[in-house]
Nucleic acid binder design. Structure first.
Lengths: 223, 223
DNA sequence: CAAAATACTTGCATGTAGTGCAAAGTTGCA
DNA sequence: TGCAACTTTGCACTACATGCAAGTATTTTG
């Protein structure tokens, strides 16, 4: 196995890697194009393969389904979120790191593909499967990061704490996205993105304050 | 459409309803039995239909896939959770209600099918799809309950708050279940169930206290 | 540089999933 | 009892998904 050194694995863009990346990209591009043109559920794997200039069989070497191909867009988005999260200092409180990582995503480049995908598949449960899986995959990554960080801290061995924290962070990120989409649709203007940023900040803040405000009392039995 | 009155729809167990319920049950029973016998992914819809004494085509009148049939077990579990939640007084803080509803589920009758399903499908992503969907469906129900409750309270119109709250509650319930299964496996003894109850209480308590304990500081920007 | 090793693509064959349709069988109701 | 409404079933058909083996491109080795 080549250098798995602590720094980012330097790009060895061999021909094969490049070809595979290009094919992969061609597939997702073709899939998105067909989604735009025909709407969700109205095209087949063969259509995608033809549009991407590959064989049907090769499609399945890259993705296990149409949904998976489209969900790779969501995966891409969430993967950069994880990257951002890993860049945060390890001694920063998790919720602050999560806020920072999420806010870094409220940028046109990153959200544009996701926004389009959402608007194209709105109220169509066809994407739901793979999309839920993408978020869950991200949750698992957040869990891994949180686990590492808290390994040394007092009480950091508490599996429940780490699981609940990772899941809640994801849920809040998802909630902010949902609210944003429902309010602004595919609007990517500066004002809209500012609103998204604020929603992301607020949703994580809710976690940090125990969901205090709206209800009357928030007393909760602690054992 | 018949009476959709506020009280629970009184049981009109006509012959047809009974037959359908029986068929449905026969299908899930057969599916679970095959899962026990052959393991996940090693049986077909036709196998289930044969074992349930119906035709392949009829299977699809009830469920859209093998996974869906098995996930109905999870749905059943989570639906009773929602029932419990709806029974709580409307002026009780959401987190307390959630705690109570979850604790009510830590009972052998309710968790037994779920525990078996989990152990049979552990580290097999075959169930993941429908299982994630089941939890998400439950999330939507929690959202609906929370929305109703908070409609009148100050700030209760805040969609973000309600979405984030519902999602986080689900995540914490899931986290508690996961930790419990990873610790005790299919153990349904009184002691094990007590531990589950405590995990559920603690996970919701984490939400109420803003995930305070383990990390050093938990300060989070609030705007 | 040529040849061998490796990795990727493709076509074919096969089994299964899922759905529309119409005929046959049940149940509900007057 | 007889008709209306609903449910089951078989059949046909499209599409999904994977294994396999042969072909093509890329990398490595001598």
């Amino acid at each position: 196995m080549p250098t798995t050194s602590p720094d980012a694995q330097q790009a060895p863009p061999s021909r094969r890697e490049l070809n595979k990346a290009a094919t992969r990209q061609a597939i997702t591009d073709a899939a998105l194009e067909l989604l735009r043109a025909k709407g969700p559920g109205n095209f087949t794997v063969e259509d995608i393969a033809d549009a991407a200039g590959i064989s049907r069989r090769t499609f399945f070497n890259y993705f296990s389904s149409t949904d998976a191909a489209l969900a790779s867009i969501v995966h891409g988005f969430l993967d950069t979120a994880i990257q951002q999260l890993r860049l945060r200092p390890a001694d920063e409180p998790m919720l602050e790191s999560a806020q920072a990582a999420l806010v870094a995503l409220a940028d046109p480049e990153a959200v544009a593909p996701l926004a389009e995908l959402f608007t194209l598949t709105q109220q169509s449960p066809l994407m739901a499967h793979s999309e839920l899986e993408a978020w869950d995959h991200c949750r698992a990554q957040v869990f891994a990061v949180a686990r590492e960080r808290l390994a040394g801290t007092p009480g950091g061995q508490d599996e429940l704490y780490v699981h609940a924290l990772a899941g809640s962070i994801i849920s809040c990120g998802k909630a902010a996205m949902e609210v944003w989409f429902s309010r602004r649709g595919p609007d990517l203007t500066a004002g809209s993105l500012t609103e998204l940023r604020q929603l992301l900040i607020d949703s994580i803040a809710l976690l940090g304050t125990g969901f205090a405000p709206p209800a009357s009392s928030s007393a909760v039995r602690t054992s």
